[in-house]
């Protein structure tokens, strides 16, 4: 127990009012629940740059809830336990949007336990930077032809003259046969769902630096005219993530997935966004 300086969750919640930083909570309006399984429950309400904390058994109406035990909660607050590690190890759970919960770290100045060594260590400098570089990509004749096709709502694939496999987006050569691809065929535009990456976690869009909305579905579609691994990679309509069925081929046994069709953008510029997404072809 000497490890946690005798601090209890009660001490941490009671000190929240004094540690509150209105500027850190600006523009945020949410209710956070804390279920400290062996110590009690607290409800933190943040609105209009103000806060209130209540000890209450009733955590209904919370936007997001943290569930953990005293040792873990105290450990994180006094800097002895890494919150991300506790989450990974299942010692801490979050019900609701974890990104919303992460906002709470901005609301308060750090909790310092009485007796905790407050003597500053050496100041270690950390420089935060963003590298931002403009780029220009040459499509080349093959990718260029494919992208131009999208402008007129055609999905083109290139065909290997030896093995006959289709590639879309196309490549100039079939790397397996080591020959130049020559023939073009139009595929789709409808097809069958094969595989979906149901993404709960988004990485930043490298073009804008913005993080896209989650969840989203990155999908592999077997467009009509294609076979085997000739899947086409795009996105699924966001509100249909839970309505589609994946297909598969296992030891020759085919399981068909949902039928999908593209939804074309009105303003097409010859890029991946010319197709907004694919949706169920009902």
């Amino acid at each position: 127990m000497s490890q946690d300086y005798g601090v209890t969750p009660n001490d941490i919640f009671n000190s929240m009012k004094d540690r509150f930083r209105a500027e850190g909570a600006a523009g945020i309006s949410s209710v956070f629940g804390y279920d400290i399984t062996d110590a009690g429950r607290w409800k933190l309400t943040v609105k209009d740059g103000a806060m209130s904390i209540d000890k209450t058994d009733d955590l209904s109406g919370c936007d997001v809830k943290l569930i953990t035990d005293s040792a873990t909660y105290v450990g994180i607050n006094i800097g002895k336990i890494d919150g991300m590690q506790a989450l990974s190890a299942g010692k801490l759970k979050v019900e609701g949007d974890i990104n919303t919960f992460a906002l709470t770290s901005r609301f308060f100045v750090k909790f310092v336990a009485p007796g905790q060594d407050a003597a500053p260590e050496q100041e270690l400098l950390v420089l935060k930077k963003v590298i931002s570089v403009k780029q220009r990509f040459a499509t080349g004749p093959v990718m260029g032809k494919f992208l131009k096709g999208l402008k007129v709502q055609k999905i083109l694939a290139i065909k290997c003259p030896e093995c006959g496999r289709l590639q879309s987006p196309p490549r100039e050569a079939c790397a397996i046969c080591r020959v130049k691809n020559t023939d073009w065929v139009e595929i789709g535009p409808n097809g069958e769902m094969r595989m979906m990456e149901y993404c709960y976690y988004a990485s930043p869009d490298p073009l804008t630096g913005e993080t896209r909305e989650t969840p989203y579905g990155a999908i592999g579609i077997l467009l009509d005219g294609c076979r085997d691994e000739e899947v086409f990679w795009h996105l699924l309509r966001p509100d249909q993530l839970d309505q589609v069925k994946m297909g598969s081929v296992l030891n020759g046994k085919v399981t068909h997935g949902s039928r999908l069709r593209p939804v074309w953008a009105d303003n097409r510029t010859g890029g991946i966004s010319d197709i907004k997404y694919f949706e169920i072809d009902a």
């Binding site: 992208l147 987006p169 990456e197 930043p204 990679w233």
Partner: peptide, 22 residues
């Protein structure tokens, strides 16, 4: 994950790839 996404084909896969997660 941002770095990994930036390694993907800029004309197509960059918009779709979810870093190293799959």
């Amino acid at each position: 994950t941002g770095g990994i996404t930036n390694m993907a084909d800029p004309l197509w896969a960059r918009k779709l790839q979810s870093g190293a997660l799959t």
